Amino acid sequence: MTRISEADAELKKSLALEGDAGVKIWRVSTQPNAELAAHFLNINPPQGAGEASIAPRSDGQFDVFYLS
Rank of each mutant, 00 (worst) to 15 (best):
K13A: 04
L15S: 02
A37N: 03
Q31C: 05
A16R: 09
P56Y: 05
A7H: 06
V28A: 10
N42P: 01
L36M: 14
L15Q: 08
S29I: 01
S53K: 15
A7V: 04
A49Y: 00
Q31N: 08
N42G: 11
N44M: 11
F40C: 01
G22H: 09
A7F: 00
W26R: 15
T30I: 10
A37I: 01
K13Y: 03
L17S: 11
G48K: 13
E51M: 08
A7L: 08
L36R: 15
P45Y: 02
I43H: 00
R27L: 07
L17D: 04
A9M: 03
L15I: 08
D20P: 03
E10Q: 12
E10D: 12
S29E: 05
V23N: 11
I43L: 10
A49T: 11
L41I: 02
G22Y: 06
A16Y: 00
L17W: 05
R27H: 10
S58E: 12
L11H: 07
E51G: 01
N33E: 12
A55F: 10
I43E: 06
G19M: 14
D59A: 06
N42Y: 06
T30L: 01
D59W: 05
L11S: 13
R27W: 06
K12R: 12
S58A: 13
A16D: 01
K13L: 06
S14R: 15
D20A: 15
G60H: 06
N42M: 13
D20C: 14
F40D: 00
A38H: 07
A34F: 14
Q47W: 05
F40Q: 00
I54R: 00
E35Y: 08
G60F: 09
R27Q: 08
P46W: 10
A52R: 03
L15G: 05
Q47T: 09
K24C: 05
L41A: 01
R57Q: 02
G60A: 15
P46K: 14
P32H: 13
D59P: 00
A37S: 07
N33Y: 08
Q31R: 13
I54N: 09
A38Y: 11
W26L: 13
L36Q: 07
N33C: 14
L15H: 03
D8Q: 05
L11M: 03
G60Y: 06
I25H: 14
D20I: 12
E35A: 13
P45W: 11
G19K: 15
G19F: 02
Q31K: 09
G50M: 03
A7W: 00
P45N: 09
A49K: 14
E51Y: 05
E18H: 08
S53Q: 15
F40T: 00
A38D: 07
L15M: 11
A21F: 14
D8I: 01
K13G: 05
V23T: 15
D8S: 04
K12G: 04
E10C: 09
F40H: 00
P45I: 13
D20V: 14
K12C: 07
G60R: 13
G60I: 12
S58K: 10
P45F: 10
A16S: 13
A37C: 14
P32M: 10
A34Y: 07
D59Y: 03
Q61L: 06
K13T: 01
L41P: 01
L15V: 09
